[in-house]
Simulated scan of single mutants.
Amino acid sequence: MSGLKKRSVSLAGHATSVALEPEFWAVLDRIAAERGLSQAGLMVQIDKERGRRPLASACRLLALDWVARPRPGAD
């Protein structure tokens, strides 16, 4: 995998950044598009649902879950 890429985001009024591999960002961008969200909107959603898990870990797990999910028409 390539090196980490950082993206800045505002969560609950606080600026933070998340560093992930470009491959994970590509999947997260597809998830955001599928859900009709901006990149920032998806990050807010992940933040609300992650519990005590680190944000970067929650992002990676969401991406892995999404790519493993069966797609209609895919055999």
Score class of each variant (00 low, 15 high):
1 M>E: 12
2 S>Y: 08
2 S>V: 03
3 G>N: 12
4 L>W: 06
4 L>D: 11
5 K>L: 15
6 K>T: 14
7 R>T: 02
8 S>Y: 06
8 S>N: 09
8 S>L: 06
8 S>P: 01
9 V>E: 07
9 V>I: 13
11 L>M: 07
11 L>C: 01
11 L>V: 09
11 L>Y: 00
11 L>W: 05
12 A>V: 06
12 A>W: 03
12 A>C: 06
13 G>V: 02
14 H>E: 15
14 H>N: 13
14 H>T: 12
15 A>H: 09
15 A>M: 08
15 A>Y: 00
15 A>D: 11
16 T>N: 00
16 T>R: 15
17 S>G: 12
18 V>M: 00
18 V>P: 00
19 A>W: 02
19 A>R: 09
19 A>T: 04
20 L>W: 01
20 L>A: 00
20 L>H: 02
20 L>C: 00
21 E>H: 12
21 E>M: 11
21 E>C: 04
21 E>D: 14
22 P>H: 03
24 F>W: 01
24 F>T: 14
25 W>Y: 00
25 W>N: 09
25 W>I: 07
25 W>G: 11
26 A>D: 15
28 L>F: 09
28 L>Q: 02
28 L>T: 05
29 D>W: 03
29 D>K: 08
29 D>R: 14
29 D>M: 08
30 R>A: 15
30 R>T: 13
30 R>N: 13
31 I>P: 00
31 I>H: 07
31 I>A: 06
31 I>D: 05
32 A>D: 01
32 A>M: 09
32 A>W: 04
34 E>R: 14
35 R>I: 02
35 R>S: 07
37 L>H: 08
38 S>H: 06
39 Q>F: 03
39 Q>A: 12
39 Q>T: 14
40 A>H: 12
40 A>V: 06
41 G>F: 04
41 G>W: 05
41 G>P: 01
42 L>M: 06
43 M>E: 04
44 V>W: 02
44 V>G: 01
45 Q>R: 15
45 Q>C: 09
46 I>K: 09
46 I>W: 05
47 D>V: 04
48 K>R: 15
48 K>W: 05
48 K>Q: 15
48 K>N: 13
49 E>F: 03
50 R>H: 04
50 R>N: 02
51 G>K: 02
51 G>P: 08
52 R>C: 07
52 R>N: 13
52 R>F: 08
53 R>H: 07
53 R>M: 15
54 P>V: 10
54 P>T: 08
54 P>W: 00
54 P>G: 07
55 L>W: 06
56 A>T: 05
56 A>D: 12
56 A>H: 13
57 S>P: 00
58 A>K: 08
58 A>W: 05
59 C>G: 11
59 C>L: 09
59 C>A: 15
60 R>T: 13
62 L>H: 00
62 L>T: 09
63 A>Q: 05
63 A>I: 01
65 D>Q: 14
65 D>K: 13
65 D>Y: 07
65 D>N: 14
66 W>E: 07
66 W>L: 01
67 V>L: 08
67 V>Y: 03
67 V>P: 09
68 A>D: 13
68 A>P: 01
69 R>Y: 05
69 R>S: 11
71 R>D: 01
71 R>A: 09
71 R>L: 11
72 P>E: 10
72 P>H: 11
72 P>Q: 12
73 G>M: 11
73 G>T: 12
73 G>V: 11
73 G>Y: 10
73 G>H: 10
74 A>M: 10
74 A>D: 10
74 A>N: 06
74 A>T: 09
75 D>Y: 07
75 D>H: 11
